[in-house]
Nucleic acid binder design. Structure first.
Lengths: 174, 174
DNA sequence: TGCAACCGATTGCAAATTGCAATCAGATTC
DNA sequence: GAATCTGATTGCAATTTGCAATCGGTTGCA
């Protein structure tokens, strides 16, 4: 599955990179979910990706220089997938996409709280997040200070989940 | 071809709307190319879409409320496709997508000049363009004043074409 | 009036893609 | 040394895609 190069139009070429049903979902899980291993991506995927498709897309995204793969020193079979700068700069696009979907599509509350926060945070928050990703995936020098953007988003997600569980009486212990 | 609703995640749902190889290309041609008829979209498409796929996607985009169809009073068989507000608000996403593609992908000069201008114009230009689209497609009241954004982009494109034609000695008349 | 060109599609068909289930061999854990 | 976990691969049926040909109706022109 290569780039067809149907035309040199930037929008067309962008679509040829991630204009399918899975590539951007995988990148989303790596970026926002912090997943780095095959199994994490396979089992953690909300949408239930099949293992052969995951393998194919990871390979394709590596060929396109969106991802790199490295050995995990702690486990000789494990591979660690890392974002490239090319993929990290998708953050503003993902933020816009999330914001658009939140307005026009039947999103669920839990899963859109992250998009809402990211939208409210605006470009400064996106920049901070991209720098954190650079540190995490590219080994860029400045370690993030204070709570990370991902942790902030995750905490908001967890809070919504907890609140909704309480509301329907799913509190574990009386 | 309906929305699967694999999950309520905004990014996933957005992808289910236009995460294929053609939907966004069609919207691009309507938005930036000003095309409104089936044949215009079919023949004007840089990427060479097939008529059955175009028909299918137009139908799908109408079901998703991204487009509406109306009779052309001047031709009983002609249909005019119009953008909905939902589709018009994709402009910032298309602008980002174009900007990203221009940085990371092997775009051609002619086809990326529009993306470059749109990027430089920033949100104010996008807003102006969206208002023009609202006038054109939704009959919104304020007619655009001065040169339209689309005309500006088109002129820049034509200028690049002309300059390159001259450079390789393709000037029509001596 | 005749006719070619054009209108938005539709159909048939081969090829590619998708998604599911089962399976793999090596590494690690218990 | 058995069970589990690792990143995949394979076989297969169903769906989707893209191409070419074609459709019935409309229009413009001679």
């Amino acid at each position: 599955m290569n780039i067809d190069r149907r035309s040199g139009c930037p929008i067309n070429l962008s679509l040829e990179v991630f204009g399918d049903r899975w590539s951007l979902i995988i990148l989303r899980d790596i970026i926002f979910g912090g997943r780095r291993h095959f199994r994490e991506l396979l089992n953690g995927s909300m949408e239930g990706i099949a293992s052969n498709i995951l393998a194919d897309r990871l390979k394709r995204l590596m060929e396109l220089s969106m991802l790199t793969k490295a050995d995990d020193p702690s486990h000789k079979q494990k591979a660690i997938y890392s974002l490239t700068e090319m993929a990290i700069t998708l953050v503003p696009i993902l933020a816009h996409l999330g914001a658009w979907g939140r307005v026009w599509l039947p999103v669920s509350e839990e899963l859109s709280i992250r998009a809402e926060l990211l939208e409210k945070g605006g470009p400064p928050m996106w920049d901070k997040f991209m720098n954190e990703l650079r540190h995490e995936h590219l080994g860029a020098s400045p370690a993030p200070s204070g709570p990370t953007v991902r942790a902030t988003l995750q905490a908001a997600y967890d809070a919504v989940i907890a609140r909704n569980a309480e509301r329907v009486g799913c509190d574990p212990a009386p």
